[in-house]
Amino acid sequence: MTGTVSSRGLDSHGHIAREGSLAGVADAFRPVVAAARDRIPGVFGTRLHSAYLYGSIPRGTARVGRSDLDLLVVLREEPADPDRAAARALDEALDRDFPQIDGGGTLLVGHARVLSDLERHDLGWFLACLCTPLLGEDLAAHLPRYRPDTLLARETNGDLALLLPRWRARIAAAEDSEEALRPLVRFMSRHLVRTAFTLVMPRWNGWTSDLREMAEAFGASYPRRAEQLRAAAVLGYEPSGSRAVLSSYVDDLGPWLAAEYTRVHGVKAARPDGP
């Protein structure tokens, strides 16, 4: 990805610039990244096509003891249950061995899916714009350049209405403890803030991964919901284990945002395996 990057994350041609780099990884996290690079080939063997970092570590904004390690692993075929079990074991081992991270998660996808027409403006965009190459061939070379338009908005986050029933079930099944509820608050806060941002992304005409900046961009267009989004952005970074917050997400903010998203951008193309 070439071209000067603007303050709103676009290059000189108006395309979303790829964020993050291995050079931007802070010294405290370099041993974690090196260990991930060393261990991934042994976990997936010849099934491995490529691997990527994403999130705060390659963006250089990670906090020691607070940030997680996010990995995307592309396999030559669609992942199976043994692959998922191996990925969980990898995440647990890295978390155990490196106190500078607070957990982690490895996303597994198949090579053909990343490059498919159906995923071009969702998973393909994610890899090309939000992921930093770590191992293997960089599939971004086979993907288009992306603009912050309504097509990208629809295909990235136009499925919130389908996700809300799953969220309600997860909340209902969760233990009523800080330890159990905090990860849900963190995950759902981040998802809602990002969805709210991509709702207004085309008119804001740019890209950011900063939750607070996302909330401010949204609030400029939807002032009545601005404080809700600012609060969600804070909880995305510093979550509390609040069932009341989760209830407000699935009973108020989430349904409103899903309806407004559909009105403005339409509904994301259906996936064979659901949202």
Rank of each mutant, 00 (worst) to 15 (best):
V264T: 14
D122Y: 09
E175W: 02
R30M: 07
D70W: 00
A231V: 11
S189I: 07
D27R: 14
R66A: 10
F29Y: 04
T262C: 12
L118G: 14
A217Y: 06
W167C: 07
E175I: 02
G65T: 01
G9T: 02
L184M: 01
V264R: 06
A258R: 01
S7Y: 11
M1N: 10
L72S: 11
R76M: 03
V43L: 00
A86F: 12
H265D: 10
L75C: 04
G104W: 02
E260A: 09
L94K: 02
D273L: 11
S209M: 14
A34I: 13
R76Q: 15
F197P: 00
S56Q: 14
S6D: 02
R186P: 11
G236W: 10
D251L: 13
A196P: 03
P255L: 04
V114G: 01
R120F: 03
V5A: 03
A89D: 15
A169D: 14
A23C: 08
P99E: 03
G55P: 07
E92S: 12
F98M: 12
I40R: 08
R190P: 03
A233E: 02
E216K: 00
L143Y: 03
H191Y: 10
S116F: 07
A85D: 13
I101H: 08
S209F: 12
F197I: 06
W256C: 03
D27S: 15
R84C: 08
Q100R: 11
M201A: 13
V64S: 14
P79K: 11
A17D: 09
F98H: 15
T2G: 13
L143G: 02
V64T: 12
L48P: 09
N157V: 15
E137S: 14
A180L: 04
L162S: 11
R63C: 08
E227N: 07
G45D: 06
R271K: 11
R154F: 06
R76F: 10
R96W: 12
L139T: 01
F218D: 05
V234E: 13
H265Q: 09
P239L: 09
P79G: 07
A36Y: 13
V74Y: 08
A89G: 09
V114N: 06
R39N: 05
A62E: 04
S50R: 13
F44M: 04
S177F: 00
S189H: 08
S7E: 14
I57V: 15
A89T: 12
S56H: 05
C129N: 10
L139P: 04
D176S: 05
L22M: 10
H191A: 15
F29W: 01
R113T: 06
E19I: 13
D38K: 15
A141R: 15
H121A: 15
G42W: 11
R203Y: 00
L48C: 03
R63F: 07
F218N: 07
Y54H: 15
L72N: 01
V200Y: 07
D176E: 12
A231T: 10
A173V: 04
S6V: 05
L69Y: 05
V73C: 01
L48R: 05
A86W: 04
A36N: 13
V64H: 10
L235I: 12
P82S: 06
S56C: 14
L152D: 09
